[in-house]
């Protein structure tokens, strides 16, 4: 049987090899497609910290994805129209600089996660699922009914934002940026899982009473995990908006939240690389089945149903075997 780390290394290598091949073969669309998979994977890696590690089934992570997207959209929109974001109480100018946009996306989505987490983590189980879904929907309707940034139509950004010393207009440099960020996020996610914080978080998922008994407050652990999780998904949102050079309320839609969970499950619950495999599989299916039939989501639904009912380990589980700790 193959070891899990070998599978993971193969995935990272493959993810780099495909766009490199596409660069040589002059197939820029394949690079864009891989970039899309990498960004969606990043969003799901964020969710996996809350879901896989903390056992918090959030059906509202599209809120953070959308906030990240709009952070990019709003800043770049003001930069391209040469208007300030706000003048009072202090002046904030728009920007086309990716690092600045990322910081904004991370900070705003972490703040939103803090607010949503403070309220929804007071509850558990089904309540938590429904409440995160409802808060996600709140942002969706707000984005639709707020006309300043395009309302239902969304915002178009004419040129991709800048990164120092890289030509982000070409697909390959942008892919490399996203790939490096994904690798960093996986590293963070792995470090968290191995840290005392991560161990306590996993323990709180498995047996809350015992964790309380040894004097750890699960609420604070979960809140912290939820904030980190939201921040990573928010960063993914900013990159996703940059990839499409477009943001719209669909980034907030609850289907988006559902798809993030689907990535994690298709790849394998409780696996570090589960979200990555799942997102790649999703993009491949979307591209391949979408070409076969307009109704490709039926097939996705059927595959998902079969995986949930009969193949709990997901794809990595099938490759690397050996059940991981998951309740």
């Amino acid at each position: 049987m193959i070891r899990e780390w070998q599978v993971n290394a193969a995935i990272m290598a493959l993810l780099l090899a495909v766009p490199l091949w596409a660069l040589v073969a002059d197939e820029p669309f394949t690079i864009t497609l891989t970039t899309r998979a990498v960004i969606l994977a990043l969003a799901a890696v964020g969710l996996n910290i809350a879901l896989g590690l903390g056992g918090l089934v959030s059906l509202g992570h599209a809120a953070f994805f959308g906030i990240g997207g709009y952070a990019m959209g709003i800043l770049a929109h003001h930069a391209q129209t040469y208007t300030p974001v706000m003048e009072w109480p202090f002046l904030i100018e728009g920007t086309k600089s990716m690092p600045l946009i990322w910081v904004t996306a991370i900070v705003t989505s972490a703040l939103a996660a803090l607010l949503i987490g403070l309220l929804s983590l007071r509850t558990t189980g089904v309540y938590f699922i429904m409440i995160t879904l409802a808060f996600g929907q709140m942002f969706f309707y707000f984005a639709i009914s707020w006309p300043a940034y395009g309302g239902e139509d969304g915002l178009s950004i004419y040129l991709r934002n800048d990164f120092p010393r890289l030509n982000t207009l070409r697909p390959m440099p942008f892919f490399v940026i996203c790939y490096v960020i994904l690798a960093l996020a996986l590293l963070v996610s792995w470090r968290i899982a191995k840290s005392s914080f991560g161990l306590a978080l996993a323990a709180a998922r498995q047996n809350e009473v015992r964790v309380r008994t040894v004097g750890i407050d699960p609420y604070r652990l979960r809140l912290f995990a939820f904030v980190i999780s939201g921040a990573i998904t928010g960063l993914a949102g900013a990159l996703f908006a940059d990839l499409n050079r477009f943001v719209s309320p669909t980034m907030f839609s609850w289907q988006m939240s559902g798809e993030f969970i689907v990535f994690i499950i298709l790849g394998g619950v409780g696996r570090l690389f589960g979200p990555v495999v799942g997102a790649c599989l999703f993009v491949i299916l979307e591209h391949w089945l979408g070409g076969v039939s307009d109704y490709w989501l039926i097939f996705l639904g059927a595959i998902l149903l079969l995986v949930v009912l009969f193949a709990r380990g997901g794809l990595i589980g099938g490759l690397a075997g050996r059940e991981v700790a998951h309740d």
Binding site: L51, V57, G258, I261, I265, G301, A302, L304, L305, V308
Partner: peptide
């Protein structure tokens, strides 16, 4: 609940 959410999402 995670499995229930996913299976009914598939539905």
């Amino acid at each position: 609940h995670l499995d229930q959410v996913l299976a009914t999402f598939a539905l």
